[in-house]
């Protein structure tokens, strides 16, 4: 598989606090990469750097072999890197299709020259299309997002990533605060997204979820990469033990220590 994203020796400090201490990792096209680690390991910081929300103190980010500097999430989005945040970044009062097209609304011409108005019909139809591709049923594209279940909201957020035509989707704790049934629904959504040849990075505290959907796992601890392992034949219990002990043992496929 070709390399999509390449992080080289990423450092990030907040004043005296070293959040990331030289993390390098590679994301390959079409994989579902999970980033795991205890609280304070540096997962969120790493994700913020890739998504353009924060700048690294030092280190390089390469996308398809070209170095990129994301100054904002909008920059990252323009390069096809979309982040689905834990709070999903939706406007609950507004309708399903409005949320999917937030910031990129479709318009149509009117009889008055240069006056374009919102093309609500076209957006509704396209929104239904995106959701259909995820096998999720939301009957009314005009329903307010507030009336949807957690799983359905996640689907709306993912549909927005599809609408952006993102090639890399970063998901921050996608199953946090969801019930059992909805978690299963979201995991299914991730698989659907994976089937559409979208590369996914997922952060999760839920080991069951990680082993269920990820193809590869990177484990961080105290701002360093402990190692990587594949999810084949890996159990959630084993993964938990690796994170807790800070040792991947025979499972480790790459070992990396602090650079500099």
């Amino acid at each position: 598989m070709a390399t999509l994203l390449d992080l080289k020796s990423i450092h990030k400090s907040y004043g005296a606090v070293q959040a990331l201490n030289g993390v390098s990792l590679t994301v390959r096209e079409g994989e579902v990469l999970a980033i795991c680690g205890d609280n304070g390991a540096g997962k969120s910081t790493l994700i913020k750097i890739v998504s353009g929300a924060e700048a690294a103190t030092s280190g390089q980010v390469f996308l398809r072999g070209k170095e990129v500097h994301f100054a904002s999430p909008a920059d990252a989005l323009a390069c096809g890197v979309a982040t689905i945040y834990q709070d999903l970044a939706l406007a609950p009062r507004l309708q399903v299709y409005q949320n999917i097209f937030m910031g990129a609304e479709l318009t149509r011409a009117t009889f008055i020259p240069f006056l374009r108005i919102l093309d609500k019909k076209k957006m509704s139809q396209a929104a239904a299309d995106y959701l259909g591709r995820l096998n999720i049923e939301i009957k009314d594209m005009k329903a307010p997002v507030a009336s949807l279940s957690g799983g359905q909201r996640q689907a709306v957020a993912i549909s927005r990533a599809l609408r952006w035509q993102a090639s890399l989707v970063i998901m921050d704790e996608p199953t946090a605060a969801l019930g059992v049934r909805e978690t299963a629904q979201v995991l299914d959504l991730i698989r659907q997204l994976h089937d559409q040849a979208v590369t996914i990075i997922i952060i999760s505290h839920n080991m069951e979820d990680v082993v269920a959907v990820a193809t590869r796992i990177v484990i961080l601890k105290n701002g360093l990469k402990l190692g990587e392992c594949l999810t084949e034949n890996l159990t959630a219990a084993e993964l938990s033990r690796m994170i807790a002990l800070g040792d991947l043992g025979d499972r480790n496929i790459i070992r990396q220590t602090a650079v500099e």
């Binding site: 999430p73 909008a74 982040t83 945040y85 970044a89 939706l90 406007a91 609950p92 009062r93 507004l94 937030m102 910031g103 990129a104 927005r160």
Partner: peptide, 9 residues
């Protein structure tokens, strides 16, 4: 409605 979400969008 959601300042931060709108900005990200």
């Amino acid at each position: 409605e959601n300042d931060e979400a709108a900005r990200l969008g």
